[in-house]
Computed example of a mutant assay.
Amino acid sequence: MDGDTSEQQQQQRWPSIHDPATCARKGLCPVTEAGGRLSPAKSYSLYFEQHGTGPIKLVFVMGLGMSCNAWSTQLVHFARLPQYSILVFDNRGVGNSDAPRGPYTTSSMAEDVITLLDFLSWTDKRSLHLLGFSLGGMIAQELAYRIPERLISLTLGVTTAGGFPLFNFPPWIGMKGIIRLQFIRDPKRRIPHTLEMCFNAAWLDAKAENDSKGRTNREVQIALFEKRASVTRIQTPQGFLWQTWAGFTHHVQAERLTQISKTVPKVLILTGDEDHLVRPSNSAYLKRHMPEAEYIVWKDTGHIVSGQHVERFNTLLERVFVEGQDKLEGR
């Protein structure tokens, strides 16, 4: 009975879109970030969920303004497979995690993740498959530079190495959408604008494949985003501001990219050719400085590659995980 009560209390405190039957543990990881000479240390918590208890460990890092509920289509797939343990979490400034005062940087957000991995004892050498999406891909680059010895594979989805802040700005469609969303607090009213930024219009208006209700992709995505919004805490203006600052100031130098490419057994760079939030040319730049990496561009695809091509994306990840292990073992 006590166990049931505890589970109910957890669901009420930290509601989640993910299946509670696959959840092995969830909670808050305490983080303390040392301040400089003129600023004190900051203490805050990161919310996390681990699904599955298999030997293959997956770490998924989400992007700007999105909680770990945005990994729902990946959790549905991987959490049902007994070989996997999947870690998802809310970055600082979003969801159930705290939003400490800024500024944030992708390097400090990567240190948050290392603290979380240490907290969970996910510290073994060559034990992790890391996937970073958009801002999460920027954080993943910083992670891969800091703890390459823990990684088997690294997947960088729709992301950038950054540089001078002006060059980190998204294309006009994305920039316009980001600005507009700051004046809309109602989660449901935000969804149409989010979809326009994250998917290409032709795909949104097309009939969804294998949908028993005969809906368009737009209708399917609206229902999914509404479901996520119903259990996700609204991001604070402070959280959005400092996460955005982290993205705009992100920069991993070319020599560091080359070092990552050499030290992680398998690296995949993936983008869509109609991305309105992170220019596809940024992925081409990553490839130029990560010569060992596999580089894939999906045609007629927007920013959320994982949502536009769910089965294709999940199958690709499975291949990356296998190839990373094969390279590690010299096969």
Rank of each mutant, 00 (worst) to 15 (best):
D98W: 00
T263S: 12
K42V: 10
N96I: 02
G163T: 05
T194Q: 15
I56A: 09
L328N: 03
S134T: 04
G157P: 03
Q8F: 03
L241V: 04
W172P: 01
K213N: 11
L131W: 02
L116Y: 06
E149K: 10
E294G: 00
R146N: 07
S43D: 11
Q8A: 15
G93P: 01
E329Q: 14
R37H: 09
D112E: 09
D273T: 10
Y84S: 07
G35V: 06
Y285S: 09
A201I: 10
S281H: 06
L135C: 05
L156V: 01
A140Y: 02
K213V: 00
G137W: 01
K227S: 15
F313R: 01
F248I: 14
T73Q: 11
Y104D: 08
E255V: 00
A41E: 12
L38F: 13
Q12T: 08
E318R: 13
E142D: 15
E7L: 13
M109V: 01
E294K: 12
E33H: 10
R80N: 09
F225E: 12
K227F: 03
F313L: 03
I304E: 09
G132R: 04
N168S: 05
E329M: 10
G162F: 00
G137V: 06
C68L: 10
I178R: 10
E142H: 15
H129S: 07
H251W: 15
I179L: 12
R215S: 07
M138F: 01
R37E: 14
N168G: 04
T159A: 07
T32D: 02
L166M: 13
T160L: 04
R126C: 04
G35R: 05
G36F: 01
D275S: 03
D205W: 03
R37K: 11
L116D: 07
G52M: 07
T123N: 11
R228E: 13
D211L: 04
K227Y: 03
Q325I: 04
Y295A: 05
A24W: 00
W71Y: 08
G302H: 09
G324V: 08
F183P: 00
H250S: 14
R25F: 01
G136F: 01
Q83I: 04
V61W: 00
H251C: 14
A293I: 03
C23Y: 02
V278D: 01
L166S: 13
D118G: 05
R189G: 12
D275T: 07
G239H: 03
F248V: 12
P265K: 06
T160N: 05
H309S: 09
S230G: 10
I147G: 05
E292M: 06
L28M: 15
S230L: 04
H289I: 03
R37S: 13
P280M: 03
V94F: 02
G52Y: 04
Q182N: 14
N168T: 08
S283N: 08
G93Y: 02
I152P: 02
Q325F: 01
